[in-house]
Nucleic acid binder design. Sequence first.
RNA 1: GCUCAGAUGGUGGAACUGGUAGACACGCAGGACUUAAAAUCCUGUUCCCGUUAAAGGAGUGCGGGUUCGAUUCCCGCUCUGAGUACCA
Length: 969
Amino acid sequence: MDYQFQKIEKDWQKFWAENKTFRADNQSGKPKYYVLDMFPYPSGAGLHVGHPLGYIASDIFARYKRLKGFNVLHPMGYDSFGLPAEQYAIQTGQHPSVTTEDNIATYRRQLDQIGFSFDWDREVRTSSPDYYKWTQWIFMQLFNSYYDKDADKAQSIAKLVAHFESNGSAGVNAVCDEEVLSFTADEWKAFSAQQQQAELLKYRLTYLRESTVNWCAALGTVLANDEVKDGFSERGGYPVEQKKMMQWSMRITAYAQRLLQGLDHIDWPEPLKEMQRNWIGKSVGASVRFPLEASPKSSPKERTSEEGSNSLSFGEGRGEAASYIEVFTTRVDTVFGVSFLVIAPEHELVAELTTPGQKADIETYIAQTKKKSELDRMADTKTVSGAFTGSYVTNPLNGEKVPVWIADYVLAGYGTGAVMAVPSGDQRDFLFAKHFNLPIIPIIDIQNIEIEADPTKEGKYINSDFINGLGYKEATAAVVARLEELGLGKAKVNFRMRDAIFGRQRYWGEPVPVYFKDGLPYLIEEQHLPLLLPEIDKYLPTESGEPPLGRATDWSYKAEGKVSPIGEDLEGAEAFYAYELSTMPGWAGSSWYWYRYMDAHNDQEFASREAIEYWKDVDLYIGGSEHATGHLLYSRFWNKFLKDIGKVVEEEPFKKLINQGMIQGRSNFVYRLIDEEGKGTNTFVSHGLIKEYKTSPLHVDVNIVENEVLNVNKFKAWREDFADAEFILENGKYICGVEVEKMSKSKFNVVNPDDLIARYGADTLRMYEMFLGPLEQSKPWNTNGIEGVFKFLRKFWKLFHDADFNFNVSDEAPTKAELKSLHKIIQKVEQDIERFSFNTSVSSFMIAVNELTDLKCSKRAILQELVITLAPYAPHICEELWTLLGNPAGTISTAAYPIFNPAYLVEDEFSYPVSFNGKMKTNVSLSLTMETADIEAAVLANADVQKYLDGKTPKKVIVVKGRIVNIVI
RNA sequence: GCUCAGAUGGUGGAACUGGUAGACACGCAGGACUUAAAAUCCUGUUCCCGUUAAAGGAGUGCGGGUUCGAUUCCCGCUCUGAGUACCA
């Protein structure tokens, strides 16, 4: 039979499913290997040809590892909570779970067609209650934990309570809100339960607080920083504004240092690690307090907690007048160059600092900055603007009077929202000083500040009191020491990363397992998990602007017992408490899912101890780099937390990570002829001739174009108005234009894997996706060339068959040449897979099959091994041939990868390339056992070489044994 | 602006540690088979000069450098893509 891929592929996919060929066991004598793909959000559009790229690569790797004797865990699931299903629900009234279900069915069908070796018994769906029960459970553990800086890990909140009970707040070194109370043990005990709860909330790893959020009115929800691009929502492109809201947050900043350090120990692409480093944004510097002019010197040592908190930290606490402004600086050595202070327009002290005389100015300026959108503010970095408050602070080291300004180049969200301006060393301060005529004080002898600021660290200090004459390092140390002595500053590490907002005003997400009592949040009891998403009448905010869950009629909790059903006797109604109305964000379910695969059906734990200790972590994770600062950071955070509380064993979840490149679209164009009146005609000009005519380009469906040649008949059938289109051809063909764009329906450049599989089969698709180029490189999809891979598989099939397609394999002993071809490919594929260079192994397979075809090789000894090496790439055809070779069905998946024998590659002769001054001219074939001196003599004696020498004596002859001869003349 | 990645034939790409640049495939051209087409097979295909062959010259974004020898290493520049954006 000819290569009948459709039948073969269907048969084997059925066989794998029925026999659970790829089921992984949680115990095995084999070493474990965990290959994970980033699970997809099941969108309504289904898979396009770009999606499976990473899945194919990981599948090849997983299948290869099985052949290499590993117990491989290779699961797949769905990140099935998300906005699109909800948007669709709003439009159609259809429950998101219904559309999600449908979309998953489509995904599953498409995935199955490609022949992946997933263990489907372990499938997870983040929107399934069996799954989100454990997402909620992890949330509860976070709520019940705080970060102890001395132990440098998360600890049970009970431990903190015990500390408060015996020692009060003294000696607590924890990551917390900036405004925590100082109290004794007795005072703590005297607090009401409510006061205690309010205080503990300031320490919990997930907590509620009023924060400035990215509010997207069009989507009706808040967005995480990584979901906002240039002031617009990443999804949909709607405007995003800053708004203050009560929000659940995750204290990820507690882990900033560990998240940073962990990067040094994982095998991830360097650019991705760099992105995380930038996102975390560690800067080492100092905090410095500038006392306010009029007020008496503060006694700042009483403050309990600003350390480690990343948030704004102003004043002495609530209700009291501030006595200083705190700034963060990375150049504390330049403190004698401070000629003014700048605080953000949103800074808490602005009103207090503004003198009556300056009030009008300041108010005008604030109004002006408020009007500017986030986008304008970012785009416009050149215009200098600001206003003087009228107040002064004192330089803590030289007592000089320093004016306080406000300006929008200082961001409220970073550091303390205030900077000490050193115009001689900082370009922004320099421009500001020039613009407003403020003094610019040189502080380093070699500084050149004629035209711009000079941030040098070289040279000696001048105009700088006790550090005059010192160098950078000593000066910094001396200034910090003096500030500490004065109690007006200290060395400080600042992180740019903020705590992550953990709530969406949306329906289609995990409910937060929290109810409210007297305005404070409490966890529901663990036995009541999962807290199921309630049914609601429509998926919109309530009339009063509450999130959609506010529409649920029975959305409350009875602490001692059960969830209140509607219409229940209202006796004891005061014991029913309202649930949280927001739901968890998209990243909640994806921040731990790799553990659920380890033990997907466990209803006692998120995964059993045994399963976690066996599988430990993900050995290879493949996915897109777009998740660099979202999913991949949050997952590392949750993993570290789970490690801290002893639930998992590894500090980092993903040992090795590979980013597959994005597949871009490749659009084709036709060119409509424009007539004299400037109107479009129904005549189309071939691309090569468009310079001679007036035309306008028009996207054309790439599926009716082959090798840039338009199928004219299909084009006429494509759209009614083209039915009687006419064409101006070149060489009898209509050639289309080409452009690389995003793959999207509106550009008619979407290529569907289903169509390609129907035409060429999954094995061809798999190999072609790999053949396209290096996995990590982004590239446009181009179906041109898929024929080459298809031909290769047919040729491969033919090796096992005679001219009439009868299966025909001989048991003759292989020749040296055949063994050489085989072992070349065994070695090559092994090396290529280990370095994830799948495209080069496809070429090598082609070379091997070409060679064996030329050798007319049909020997079992060769082909049986070749089939195993190809099986990870083209599993269906290999299963079929493996069975035809007489092996039990399905056993190729666990066959042993052939052992490479270098002896078969040993050559005794080598054709030395001989170059003259580095330019290759001729070859001389010599024995590989020859020594350098003999090679030189033999080469020089060669007739061709003599000809090139043309009687000249070589100046030098370089001989590299087994490689090259270079003659210098 | 900063950070990172990249630039090789008509196209996708290969060349792994500095050692024959262009493997493999597409496309194109020519040929075989065929009444014809499709399919299949064979040959050629970096560019320039050359009637063919030979011979010669140029050549991995641009300009320099190191080296017997550079796509590979170093310096400077241009362009493309990604991330980030007044981070004090």
